[in-house]
């Protein structure tokens, strides 16, 4: 009798645990092209060359086809990944880049504020992305509110809720 209770209880806990663990995992993001950040940085490109809004706007943005086409109209390497880009350029179709870092719609983050005013480096929030040779499938840094707040507290930035939520 008692054993029945135990078995039922433990299995219920296991199910709840499994659901919690499952829901906590972030989905992996697969990019259409295996973009090499390190290589582009070595070529002397600034972050803002591709992520055009990073200095002056809220959103950094993902590069439009035109930006890629500046260099890649003719293939520069033998890479199969570059060949994918070439076909897209010929067809005139935009690269279906996937956003890796997304915030809830009620969170208002501004790259301008964090780069121009606070003078933060990219890697503070994005990890060592500039040295990545393949696109990361998961965010290197988990942007939880607790994480944001700890930095804001350390640097004396605004702790007002309305600064980010409206």
């Amino acid at each position: 009798m008692l054993r029945g209770f135990w078995i039922a209880g433990v299995s219920l806990l296991l199910v709840i645990g499994a659901v919690l663990v499952g829901s906590g995992r972030e989905r992996s993001v697969r990019q259409p092209i295996q973009f090499n950040h390190a290589k582009h940085k070595a070529a002397g490109l600034e972050c803002s060359f591709c992520h055009q809004g990073v200095d002056g706007q809220a959103f950094a943005g993902l590069p439009p086809l035109e930006t890629c086409a500046i260099c890649h109209t003719a293939p520069m390497t033998e890479s199969a990944e570059e060949a994918k880009l070439a076909t897209l350029i010929v067809k005139g179709e935009p690269v279906p880049w996937q956003r890796l870092y997304g915030l809830a719609p009620h969170v208002f983050f501004s790259h301008r504020r964090h780069l121009q005013l606070a003078q933060l480096e990219c890697k503070t929030c994005h990890g060592p992305i500039e040295d990545a040779t393949t696109p990361p499938v998961r965010p290197a840094v988990k942007h939880s509110m607790k994480w944001c707040m700890s930095c804001h507290e350390q640097r004396g930035a605004s702790l007002d809720c309305m600064a980010c939520h409206r």
Partner: peptide, 12 residues
């Protein structure tokens, strides 16, 4: 808030 504005935080 510190500027004296009464705000409403929707996700809260």
């Amino acid at each position: 808030n510190p500027q004296g504005i009464v705000g409403q935080i929707y996700p809260r």
